[in-house]
Simulated assay, not measured.
Amino acid sequence: MVEIPAWFWTATIVLVIGLFVFDLVVAVRRPHAVHLGEATFWSVFYIAVAILFGFATWWQLGTTAGTEYFAGWIVEKSLSVDNLFVFVIIMARFSVPAEFQQKALLFGIAAALVLRTIFIAVGAAAIQLFSFTFLIFGLILIWTAVQLVRHRNEEPDVEDNFLVRRARKIMPVSNDFHGGKMLAHENGQRVMTPLLLVFIAIGSTDLLFALDSIPAVYGVTHEPFLVFAANAFALLGLRALYFLIEGLLERLVYLSIGLSVILAFIGVKLILLFLHEDVNKAIPEIPTPLSLVVILLILVVTTVASIVRVRAHPEEKAKAHSIRMRRKPKKEEEERRSS
């Protein structure tokens, strides 16, 4: 384990909270539709901040910590792109006006960051207490990889997840966005606006993604601090990245296959680690620098192959890959599209 100074922990948390508050002020102070130039600027800004933090980690904590951070951040960033597919569907299903999409994304991402922090703490405790935790994580990732490929051509039903259904039962839902409010009054009655349902849908969706992404990042680093930092900096730039690549997502037709290969690779890495530590030291481990190279190579090949495929078959479009969400039966989906 890497020794993390208390001041480095504190500085990182302050930086993450400061960046999020700054992002919130920028997005909510003046609701507006985000254009390509603005999305590009903020995407580059947050990627630059994440990279600079990685160099600071490398300098302060050493080469091993720096390599593990970058590997974890790249894994989380690539998995976050998969989140964006579902976010696009959510925005479309609830017909969210362009000027309110930033607010919904940010509140959803804030909830995701809090929930992932809890998951990271639970994962760290499990690793300390149970030697077979890496085996379980590895099997979860391999199972997820298989399911990701199996369901790559299906679309999740984002309006019918458990928390959204419960929210509808607790309070009436308005058809009006009421200027971007979460709650409002109609005819003397307190109601939820569709924006609150969008916030719940985004937050709960990311919670489901965290069940896979947290074990994945623990596959490249066992240090909770680096797991937290990789998740935080991957999530912070998600709002801007959403608007930057919203129109490009459907071109990544092989993303589900690429991500499934990455998850399966990390799953095998975790299982080998368990066997090395608990069964036989002669069983080889997969070093983190090699993991970083393999993950980058898979992402490059996936992206290039997707671009080549779409050029040859422009009618093909990528789909969301949230395998844990309820999916529309094919007949129901066909009826929705025809209407």
Score class of each variant (00 low, 15 high):
Gly123Lys: 07
Ala125Arg: 15
Ala126Lys: 03
Ile127Cys: 02
Thr133Ser: 14
Ile136Phe: 06
Phe137His: 08
Gly138Ala: 02
Ile140Trp: 03
Leu141Lys: 13
Leu141Arg: 04
Thr144Gln: 01
Ala145Asp: 14
Val146Pro: 02
Leu148Thr: 12
Arg152Phe: 05
Glu154Leu: 12
Glu154Met: 14
Pro156Met: 03
Asp157Cys: 00
Val158Thr: 07
Val158Cys: 02
Glu159Lys: 10
Asp160Ser: 13
Asn161Ala: 04
Phe162Ser: 00
Leu163Gly: 04
Val164Asn: 12
Val164Trp: 07
Arg165Ser: 07
Arg166Ser: 09
Arg166Val: 12
Ile170Asp: 08
Met171Phe: 14
Val173His: 03
Val173Ala: 07
Val173Met: 10
Ser174Thr: 06
Ser174Trp: 11
Asn175Arg: 14
Asn175Leu: 15
Phe177Cys: 07
Gly180Asp: 07
Gly180Trp: 05
Gly180His: 10
Gly180Tyr: 05
Lys181Glu: 05
Lys181Tyr: 02
His185Pro: 02
Glu186Asp: 07
Gly188Leu: 09
Gly188Cys: 12
Gln189Met: 15
Val191Asn: 03
Val191Pro: 01
Met192Cys: 06
Met192Asp: 03
Leu195Ala: 11
Leu196Ile: 07
Leu197Tyr: 14
Val198His: 04
Phe199Gly: 01
Ile200His: 14
Ala201Leu: 07
Gly203Met: 11
Ser204Val: 03
Ser204Pro: 09
Asp206Ala: 11
Leu208Phe: 15
Ala210Leu: 02
Ala210Asn: 05
Leu211Gly: 11
Asp212Arg: 13
Pro215Cys: 12
Val217Trp: 10
Val217Gln: 03
Tyr218Met: 04
Gly219Glu: 03
Gly219Lys: 10
Val220Lys: 11
Phe225Lys: 02
Phe228Pro: 08
Phe228Leu: 15
Ala229Cys: 13
Ala230Val: 02
Asn231Ser: 12
Ala232Cys: 06
Gly237Val: 10
Gly237Ala: 13
Leu238Cys: 11
Arg239Ser: 03
Ala240Glu: 00
Leu241Met: 15
Tyr242Cys: 12
Tyr242Ser: 00
Phe243Ala: 05
Phe243Arg: 01
Leu244Met: 15
Leu244Trp: 13
Gly247Pro: 01
Gly247Arg: 01
Glu250Cys: 00
Glu250Asp: 08
Arg251Thr: 11
Ser256Lys: 15
